[in-house]
Amino acid sequence: MPSTPTLALVTVTGRREHAAEYHAYSTMLASRAAAAAGDLGWQVEVVAAEDTGVAGTLAAADRADALVLLGGEDIAPEFYGGARGYRGEGRHAERADEAQIALVRRAHDRGTPLLGVCRGLQIIDVAFGGTLVQDLGEGSGHRHDEVPIAQVMADHEVVLHPSSRLGAALGRSVVTRSAHHQAVARVGAGLRVAGRAPDGVIEALEHTEVPIIGVQWHPEDPASPRGQLAAVLGLLGAPAVARLAA
Rank of each mutant, 00 (worst) to 15 (best):
A48L: 00
E98Q: 14
A64V: 05
A60R: 06
Y86H: 12
V68C: 09
G81R: 01
Q122N: 02
D51G: 08
A107E: 02
E73N: 15
G53D: 11
A76D: 15
E89A: 01
E50G: 10
Q122F: 08
R63A: 15
V104Y: 05
T52W: 09
T52E: 13
G56L: 07
E50L: 12
E98P: 00
V46N: 00
L121D: 10
G116Q: 01
Y86D: 11
G71N: 08
Q122G: 09
T52S: 13
R87D: 15
G88S: 10
A93H: 07
V68Q: 01
V54T: 13
R87I: 14
V46A: 11
T52K: 02
L69M: 02
A61E: 04
A60Y: 08
G81P: 06
L115E: 03
G71C: 10
G85L: 04
D97F: 04
E50H: 14
E73A: 15
P113T: 04
E94S: 13
D97W: 07
V104W: 05
T52N: 08
D51H: 08
L70D: 02
G111I: 03
Q122P: 09
G81W: 09
A107S: 02
D51N: 09
T57S: 05
Y80N: 07
T52V: 14
L70K: 05
R91G: 12
Q100C: 11
